[in-house]
């Protein structure tokens, strides 16, 4: 039984909560484009500071933004190392021969075991992972003993370091921007904003109202369906099909015993729901009024102007630079 958080929205007050979701969506997209137009680390650092000030002004909990980055740590690490290893431009900073030998491989096995044991403690997992990756290189470099399977060159160039830092800052800014959006906007407002923005797509036959209704009904039923899934799991566990136990072979049957009831209940539910909606005069494709109406306010104008100015500035910088 895990916590259920649909979306990352946390209730609160402040600048960004007062904004119309449409302004927020467009601003975030525009600012992201602007960030991509920036070409140097100093420029990005300025943008980063602006971002930090924005979050401070908007009273955004920094902890939550950092937590929002956690799932993307692998991506960040990957980009970082990718740039360091494969960018071969600029001055050569480091050039070492790596030895894949009996001793270094054994060392790495030992190192892996130590890493896994330490990881069990549960804290500083990211730092540990980084230390582990670094450690592998140290071991390859300084343990050239025993039978050697092969060797390879490990070189770091100036541009590699620069680019890896550049890319990381850019990603961090972009993730923070989107986190600000999801932290301060209810999932329902987000879908309504998207719906409203996608309305012009009607020309090519995409009905954004349907899309929004589907999303909002899904949001409404996620807790119900999860609750049900747990109950079905408990019911099947009572018949000896415990999902926390059992071999892989048994798992297949267990999954079927979970999925079939879930689907059957879901079909029944969608029938019931369709009846309930129809009986309350819902007709697909017919125009409806809305209980939540989106309205632009002064904040939206302010933020809009700021966004446009930021975009204009980056374009100017791009052209001059």
């Amino acid at each position: 039984m895990k916590n259920i958080v649909i979306g990352q929205y946390i209730p609160g007050k402040g600048l960004f909560y007062r904004m119309d979701p449409r302004t927020k969506i467009i601003s975030v997209i525009t600012l992201m484009i602007a960030i991509f137009l920036l070409g140097s680390i100093p420029q990005l650092l300025v943008a980063f500071s602006v971002c930090a000030v924005m979050m401070w002004v908007g009273n955004i909990p920094v902890k939550r933004v950092i937590r929002g980055m956690k799932p993307l740590i692998i991506l960040l690490l990957f980009t970082f190392f990718f740039q360091i290893f494969f960018n071969k431009e600029g001055k050569l900073l480091l050039d070492e021969v790596m030895h894949v030998t009996v001793v270094s491989v054994l060392g790495i096995v030992l190192w892996t075991i130590i890493w896994r044991l330490l990881a069990r403690i549960g804290k500083f997992k990211t730092v540990l992972l980084l230390a582990y990756i670094m450690g592998i290189f140290v071991l390859f470099r300084f343990l050239p003993f025993g039978y050697s399977f092969t060797t390879f060159r490990f070189a770091i160039y100036e541009k590699g370091i620069e680019m890896s830092i550049f890319v990381i800052i850019r990603l961090v800014i972009i993730i923070s921007l989107s986190t600000v959006l999801t932290l301060t906007t209810k999932p329902t407002d987000l879908t309504q904003g998207l719906e409203s923005l996608m309305r012009p797509l009607k020309i090519i036959g995409i009905r954004s109202e349907d899309f929004a209704l589907i999303i909002s009904i899904s949001l409404r039923y996620i807790p119900t369906i999860l609750d049900e899934a747990f109950k079905i799991m408990a019911a099947q566990a009572s018949r000896g099909a415990d999902f926390a136990e059992g071999k892989l072979k048994d798992k297949v049957k267990q999954v079927i015993s979970l999925l079939v009831p879930m689907f059957i209940i879901a079909f029944k539910r969608s029938e019931d729901l369709a009846d309930a909606m129809e009986s309350r005069n819902f007709v697909p494709g017919k125009p409806r009024t809305r209980i939540h109406e989106l309205r632009f306010g002064w904040t939206d104008i302010g933020v809009g102007v700021f966004t446009l100015a930021a975009l204009a500035l980056t374009i100017v910088l791009k052209v001059i630079g």
Binding site: E228, A235, A237, G240, D242, I256
Partner: peptide
């Protein structure tokens, strides 16, 4: 333990498959 204590849930839909 589930073999010793059999638990039947309220809705048969939760278990029939």
């Amino acid at each position: 333990l589930r073999k010793h204590v059999g638990l039947v849930f309220q809705f048969p839909e939760y278990q029939l498959f």
